[in-house]
């Protein structure tokens, strides 16, 4: 390795001829210049930050925080509403089911009642018709018996007359009644 040459004052060139050997940082001739510009720089940055940038960023951050909080509250509210809507829906569904059950039961009862009425009515009618028919039959039967008696009496009278006797209607009636009894 070649020797590492340390800086000599002459190496700096004409600009820094006055600077001390070694560190330019220790050249106190330049401190005034640096401090002057540093103070100006700091003043400008401080002014820009404190008057413009920091209030603006603070406002933006606060606004964003506000928006987020609002949105969260809104989301919470919407969630609550959705929950309520769901509950209302469930309740409505349950109510509707119960009502449907009631209606079905009512309809069943009604139909059963109507059916019973109709059946009873039909039964009564059938009974009435049966009674009527029986009556008609018995009338017919009675009518037939009277006819038989009439025919028998007429025939007996004719027979008695034909045999030369004189028809005694009372005796004939008694005889016919006697024969047709059984």
């Amino acid at each position: 390795m070649a020797t590492v040459t340390t800086e000599a004052a002459g190496e700096y060139g004409a600009d820094a001829a006055a600077s001390a050997p070694g560190m330019p940082q220790l050249n106190f001739d330049h401190w005034g210049n640096q401090i002057f510009w540093l103070l100006i720089t700091l003043a400008v940055i401080y002014f820009v930050l404190s008057r413009i940038a920091l209030p603006r960023i603070a406002a933006v951050l606060a606004e964003r925080q506000g928006t987020i909080t609002n949105d969260l509250a809104k989301a919470e509210e919407l969630k609550r509403q959705a929950g309520e809507a769901e509950q209302a829906y469930d309740k409505a569904l349950a109510d509707a089911r119960a009502e449907a059950q009631n209606i079905i039961a009512e309809a069943k009862a009604e139909i059963a009642a109507e059916l019973k009425v109709a059946t009873d009515k039909a039964d009564a009618e059938i009974a009435a018709r049966t009674a009527e028919s029986e009556k008609a039959i018995s009338e017919i039967r009675a009518g037939a018996l009277d006819n038989v008696k009439e025919v028998a009496r007429d025939t007996a009278e004719a027979l008695v007359t034909a045999l030369g006797g004189r028809a005694d209607s009372a005796a004939i009636d008694a005889a016919v009644a006697e024969r047709t009894k059984g």
């Binding site: 390795m1 070649a2 020797t3 590492v4 040459t5 800086e7 190496e11 700096y12 004409a14 600009d15 820094a16 001829a17 600077s19 070694g22 560190m23 330019p24 940082q25 050249n27 001739d29 330049h30 210049n33 640096q34």
Partner: peptide, 21 residues
């Protein structure tokens, strides 16, 4: 040879000519 000027980057120089700071 190898010449090192590691500290030259720190020299304060006038921007528009001249040598007085």
């Amino acid at each position: 040879g190898l010449v090192f000027h590691p500290m030259d980057q720190f020299i304060v120089k006038p921007l528009f000519g001249g040598s007085e700071v």
